[in-house]
Amino acid sequence: MMKKLLLTAILCATAFSAHSHRVWVSTDHTHGGEILKAELGYGEFPEFEPIAKERLDIFKPLQLITEKGKQNLIRKGMYNYQYQSAKPVADGSYLVVAEYQPTFWSKNAAGWKRENMTQMTDATYCEQTRMYGKNIVNVGHDSADTAIITRPVGHMLEIVPLDNPANIHVGDRFKVKVLLNGEPLPNVTLTATFDGFDTSDRSRTHKVEAQAFSDTTADDGTVSIIPLRQGFWKANVEHKMDFPDQKVCQKIANYSTLTFQIGHSHH
């Protein structure tokens, strides 16, 4: 097990990408009757950083998913990654989701640009990037419902929890299912880590943080995350496939995260 963890950490340390930034979502500990506050992560987990103005248009507003459907959160706060619900929320278990809309990124000798291969004719690589973030929020101390959070939201690539993490203790198995276009995705690697696992300074390297857990999905798309510590966790899965028109771009690249709290919240 230790070898596996070490190997994962080494692999993650050497994996460089233009898109080492991942989209993820965090919500403040919230009581029923309070405004829900959420933050859009697009940087070095678990740190938040302002989103570059020229990239703001890529992101859809954060959405709160309740039994009444989806509602956009309002961008509000000191920084452009901070959001709030329009109205106070009741006790219950909900999802807050983020979406980075399909965006072409191409690379040539000069670096990365937001273009496809018809625009950057000397590109050596192109991908249409899509990113998704999903956060499980339990409003009120006794909320551990599963109805909303175990229902797929329809992202092209998504991690669907099969239980509420409020019911999971340290060392328990937290089962999730990975879907691609709504279908189970077998044999894909899911990694997970928690706030405080990787304490190295990644601000200069922009590498993906070291992971505390790694496993592969079964034929039915399921995998059980084993959270060995209390705290704020982020699970991550990635998938690439050929872009339909190879003259325009090479790959469709999907990146999806699920964030959740194990044990008591310390916000």
Results as ranks from 00 to 15, higher is better:
P152L: 00
L56C: 11
Q250L: 11
C12W: 10
D195K: 12
N108F: 10
R229T: 12
Q82W: 05
G92S: 04
A235L: 08
L95M: 15
F213I: 00
A52N: 11
I262N: 09
K4T: 13
Q230L: 04
W233T: 08
V97S: 05
H29I: 13
K177P: 13
D28N: 09
T193H: 04
I226N: 14
I51H: 01
T193N: 08
S93P: 06
L180I: 09
L95T: 07
T146A: 14
T66W: 07
P61I: 11
P50Q: 12
D219F: 10
P165R: 01
K207E: 04
E127H: 09
V176H: 00
E44M: 13
V170I: 15
R229L: 07
I65K: 01
K177W: 12
H264M: 10
L64C: 09
M131P: 07
P186S: 09
A18T: 08
F260S: 01
T193A: 09
Q128G: 01
K247M: 04
L179G: 07
P50F: 12
L162H: 04
P161I: 05
R229A: 14
T191G: 12
I51K: 05
I226E: 15
Y255W: 15
R202Y: 00
H266Q: 05
D91E: 13
T191M: 11
R130K: 14
G33M: 05
Q211H: 03
T217C: 03
T150F: 05
T216C: 08
A192L: 03
D198G: 07
S200D: 14
W112R: 04
N135R: 06
H21D: 14
V208C: 05
S106E: 02
I149R: 05
V96P: 00
D172Y: 03
T150P: 09
K60D: 15
A9R: 14
F232V: 01
Q119P: 07
Q246K: 10
D172E: 03
K207N: 11
T146L: 10
T121R: 10
G111P: 08
D91H: 08
T199R: 10
D145I: 01
E209G: 14
D142E: 15
I168C: 01
G111I: 09
W233R: 10
L40H: 03
H141S: 13
K177N: 12
Q246F: 03
G69F: 04
K177S: 12
K107S: 03
N108R: 04
F260D: 02
S203G: 10
E158L: 02
T118A: 13
L7C: 12
W233C: 00
E238D: 15
H169S: 15
T129W: 13
S17L: 09
